[in-house]
């Protein structure tokens, strides 16, 4: 019991710092609402009946009581589609960042911890990946394996691996020469357990902050690639794909673009605010 209490005390320090940032708290609330919407819409809306079914009679209706955000050129309810689309954006953002965080920071941390020529080789290889423009990498992967959500996640994840590897390397470099690392070596701990038990936990906060802000980057990229037809295939209501579908009607029916666009903007803004708040809360130099 006591232990839990103490641990909570340490965490509450970060939480207290986070709470001071009003934008971050609002961002967190908005983000939670979006997550709830994503979950609820999966339960409430039927994929075939509400999301993809073509209803010729309801084509291009303006926003009304019946259809809050209006309907698109195939008579589909835009509100339902925007809500249903939240899950794709969130999933793509989170999963692709997890891919790059796990892979990138492990590689970077390992390189920095081992040092020497191994580090040089690993980091040059990673930078080779950095040399390929992100969009080219996505086009390559999508054209080889086909346009689907998992492939898009993989492509987005891979394209940010170098950034995480470099960041992880940098923060491990600052940690690995600390005396407590030397001390646990003098205690007889093995190199691998030192890396995972002492180096990574101390180097994790910059990686965590970067990961949070990368989620929003990935959501924007995913929408962009879907808009270009490289991402989520069309009948699925991904926000970027919806923008693409509505493009021919933008002059007469702007709400087809406004609502998915707003959804992207609000989500990204919320996540960025959380990232900012986390950065301030985890930065030991700013800690009061």
């Amino acid at each position: 019991m006591k232990k839990n209490h103490k641990k909570a005390k340490n965490k509450s320090l970060i939480w207290r710092q986070f709470k001071k940032n009003k934008g971050a708290v609002i961002g967190l609330i908005v983000f939670c609402i979006i997550v709830v919407i994503a979950i609820v819409s999966v339960i409430v809306f039927d994929f075939d009946a509400d999301i993809t079914a073509v209803k010729a009679a309801d084509r291009l209706l303006p926003p009304s009581k019946e259809h809050w955000f209006g309907t698109d050129n195939l008579g589909r309810d835009v509100f339902a589609r925007v809500c249903y689309g939240a899950q794709y954006s969130l999933l793509i953002g989170v999963v692709s960042v997890i891919i790059s965080v796990v892979f990138g920071s492990l590689v970077g941390a390992f390189a920095a911890f081992v040092g020497g020529w191994i580090e040089t080789i690993i980091m040059r290889l990673i930078e080779l990946l950095l040399m390929i423009p992100g969009i080219l990498l996505v086009i390559m992967i999508v054209y080889t394996f086909g346009a689907s959500i998992p492939n898009l996640m993989l492509a987005l994840g891979l394209s940010t691996v170098p950034h995480f590897a470099r960041n992880a390397r940098a923060s491990v470099l600052t940690v690995r020469n600390n005396e407590y690392i030397e001390a646990s070596r003098a205690l007889g701990a093995s190199e691998l357990s030192i890396l995972f038990k002492h180096v990574l936990p101390n180097a994790i906060s910059p990686i965590l902050v970067q990961a949070t802000s990368r989620i929003s980057g990935c959501i924007i990229s995913a929408a962009g690639y879907s808009f270009l037809g490289l991402g989520v295939p069309s009948p699925l209501p991904e926000w970027g794909a919806m923008l693409s579908d509505g493009r021919p009607f933008i002059y007469n029916y702007p709400y087809l673009e406004i609502f998915p666009g707003l959804a992207i903007m609000i989500t990204v803004l919320a996540i960025n605010q959380i990232g900012d708040g986390l950065r301030d809360a985890l930065d030991p130099k700013l800690k009061r």
């Binding site: 005396e179 407590y180 001390a183 646990s184 070596r185 003098a186 007889g188």
Partner: peptide
């Protein structure tokens, strides 16, 4: 070997470092 060294370190020969402020890992109790 490294394995044997790890067994000796801490078990047969241990070290107290100079600065107690930095020789404890801040993330563990």
């Amino acid at each position: 070997s490294d394995k044997e060294l790890q067994h000796i370190r801490g078990n047969e020969i241990a070290m107290v470092f100079q600065d107690p402020m930095t020789s404890l890992d801040p993330v563990y109790t």
